[in-house]
């Protein structure tokens, strides 16, 4: 495995855990799959469709999201939004992210020349 591939792999690992937090953060208001993908991309969060769409169903199964088919427009779309449990998870994960981010910032500042 080349060093570029290795770097890509580690970068992917690093981003993987943050996708759930980003998804929960954006789903405070209901969104459908493709719109969420576009909003995540606009926000600078790189995620593939084949990761995001199954993730939405998994989070729904875990009770963090609820979904509803919206048939008002010409194309029926499945909208996802946070449940109460999802709101609680968002709060907890946000706190965890902030702690982690602060710790790592401090650590990296200390060791970088």
């Amino acid at each position: 495995m080349g060093s570029d591939d290795l770097l890509a792999l580690h970068g992917q690992e690093l981003r993987r855990g943050t996708v759930v937090l980003a998804v929960l953060a954006l789903l405070g208001e209901a969104r459908y799959g493709y719109a969420l993908l576009a909003d995540l991309a606009d926000a600078g969060v790189e995620v593939e469709g084949n990761t995001l769409y199954p993730l939405l169903r998994r989070l729904e199964k875990q009770g963090l999201l609820a979904s509803e088919w919206n048939t008002d427009e010409s194309r029926p779309r499945k909208f996802y939004a946070l449940t109460d449990q999802g709101h609680a998870a968002l709060g907890a994960l946000t706190a965890e992210w902030q702690t982690l981010s602060t710790s790592l910032d401090r650590l990296l500042r200390k060791v970088s020349p």
């Binding site: 459908y32 799959g33 493709y34 719109a35 576009a38 469709g49 769409y53 169903r57 088919w69 194309r75 029926p76 779309r77 499945k78």
Partner: peptide
């Protein structure tokens, strides 16, 4: 059925973009 329906909508959205 549900995944197929959602997938079709998603693909249509992506094509429209």
């Amino acid at each position: 059925d549900d995944i197929a329906r959602e997938l079709r909508a998603t693909i249509a959205d992506a094509v429209e973009a």
